[in-house]
C-alpha cells in the first residue's frame, strides 16, 4: 500500500488533488459545487472538452520547445516573448498582405515567424558560447524587449478600431485552421502539434541525431571526447526551442484567437517550461503533462463560470507541482527505489 503511494503518477495526482481541495475549501463558499465543477467541468460536454484540447495545442509546442532547450543543457526563460513574437508576426503580416491571401503566402508568413523567433534564441545561444553571457538571462531580456516592441506594432500600427481589447484585426478566413469538433473551438492545430511532438520524440529516441543531441546536452566533455561537436548541438537546441515557441504563437493565431491580442499569451512560455520539467526524461510524456496543464486551466476556468472560484487556483496548484517536481530527493528516493 505504501509502495503504491510512492508511484510517480500517484504522487503527481496526489499533489494536484490535495492543494486543489484545500484551496477550494478555503476559498469557496460552496466547496462541493466548486470541487465538482473544477474536476469534472472539462469533461462535462464536447464543447468544454474540445476547448481544453484546443488550448493544449500551442502548449504542446512550447513544452516541446522548453524540453529541447533543457535537453541541450540551457534554460529558455524567454518563451513568453517568443510565443508573442510568433503570434504578432503571423497576425500582422496576414492582415497587412491580406490582398495576396493564399496558402503560398501563409506558408511564407509561417516560415518568417519561425525563422524570426529562432534567430532571437540563436542570438542568446551564440552570446553564451562566444561571450559567456548566461542564456538564462539573455533569453529573458530579449523576450521582454520583444514583447514591448510587438506591443508597439500592434497598438500603434495595427490596432483594431472600435474594440474594447487591444487586438489586431482578424486574419483572413482562408488562414483559419479547420474546426474538427464543433461546437467547440478545437481546430486541426491540435493534430499538427501532436504530430510534431511524436515525430520529435521519435527523432530524440531512435536516431543517431537524437543520440548525439542528448549526449551533448548531458556531458560536453564526454561528447567532445567521443568526437561529437557539442557546441553546435547546444546552439541548435536553443534555436530550435525558439522556433517551436514561435510556431506555438502561429498556432495560437491560426487556431485559437485568429488575431493577436496584447498581453494575451496564456502564460504559454512559463507553462511550457514547467510542463517540460514535469515530463522528466521521456519526451513523449510531454503530451501527458501538457494535457494535464490544460486540464487544470480549463477546470479552474469552468469553476470560475459555475462557482465563486477565481481562475488563479490552477496557477497555485501548478506552482506547488512545479516546486515538488524539481526535487532531487523525490527522484532518488522514489524513482530509483522503485527500479530496485
Amino acid at each position: 500500500m505504501i509502495r503504491l503511494f510512492k508511484h510517480p503518477v500517484i504522487l503527481i495526482l496526489l499533489l494536484i488533488l490535495c492543494p486543489t481541495t484545500i484551496l477550494i475549501f478555503l476559498l469557496s463558499n460552496d466547496p462541493l459545487l466548486s470541487l465538482t465543477s473544477f474536476f469534472s467541468g472539462p469533461f462535462s460536454n464536447t464543447y468544454h472538452l474540445g476547448n481544453m484540447l484546443n488550448s493544449s495545442s500551442p502548449l504542446l509546442l512550447t513544452s516541446l520547445g522548453a524540453y529541447i532547450a533543457l535537453k541541450s543543457n540551457s534554460f529558455n526563460l524567454g518563451g513568453e516573448g517568443q510565443v508573442f513574437l510568433g503570434a504578432t508576426i503571423t497576425a500582422l503580416l496576414s492582415v497587412y498582405f491580406d490582398r495576396y491571401a493564399n496558402y503560398g503566402t501563409l506558408g511564407l508568413i509561417i516560415l518568417i515567424a519561425i525563422i524570426a523567433t529562432g534567430l532571437i534564441t540563436w542570438l542568446s545561444a551564440w552570446l553564451d558560447s562566444r561571450y559567456h553571457v548566461n542564456s538564462l538571462i539573455s533569453t529573458y531580456l530579449l523576450s521582454m524587449a520583444t514583447i514591448h516592441i510587438c506591443n508597439y506594432f500592434i497598438t500603434q500600427k495595427f490596432l483594431k478600431e472600435g474594440s474594447n481589447i487591444l487586438a489586431s484585426d482578424k486574419i483572413n478566413d482562408l488562414y483559419k485552421l479547420k474546426n474538427i469538433l464543433p461546437p467547440s473551438t478545437l481546430s486541426s492545430g491540435f493534430v499538427i502539434a501532436l504530430v510534431i511532438v511524436v515525430i520529435s520524440s521519435f527523432i530524440l529516441k531512435y536516431t543517431i541525431l537524437g543520440y548525439e543531441f542528448k549526449i551533448s546536452g548531458r556531458n560536453t566533455k564526454f561528447a567532445h571526447s567521443m568526437g561529437i561537436n557539442s557546441n553546435i548541438y547546444k546552439i541548435s537546441g536553443l534555436t530550435l526551442s525558439g522556433s517551436l515557441h514561435g510556431l506555438a504563437g502561429v498556432l495560437l493565431v491560426l487556431g485559437n484567437h485568429h488575431a493577436v491580442i496584447v498581453g494575451f499569451s496564456n502564460n504559454l512560455g512559463w507553462n511550457g517550461l514547467s510542463s517540460a520539467l514535469l515530463a522528466g526524461s521521456k519526451s513523449i510524456m510531454i503530451i501527458v503533462t501538457s494535457l494535464l496543464y490544460s486540464y487544470l486551466d480549463s477546470g479552474s476556468n469552468y469553476a470560475t463560470i459555475t462557482s465563486d472560484l477565481t481562475i488563479e487556483v490552477s496557477t497555485i496548484v501548478k506552482s506547488v507541482l512545479f516546486f515538488v517536481i524539481s526535487s532531487k530527493i523525490i527522484k532518488e528516493q522514489i524513482i530509483y527505489r522503485n527500479k530496485k
Partner: peptide, 26 residues
C-alpha cells in the same frame, strides 16, 4: 567526466564512439 556518461544508460555510454556502426539511414 570523459570516459563514461553517468546520466545515460550503460548501452548509450558503450556505443558512443562506434555509434555510426549502429545506424542505418540515421
Amino acid at each position: 567526466g570523459k570516459g563514461v556518461e553517468l546520466n545515460s544508460l550503460l548501452k548509450e555510454t558503450m556505443i558512443a564512439k562506434k555509434r555510426f556502426n549502429f545506424s542505418k539511414i540515421g
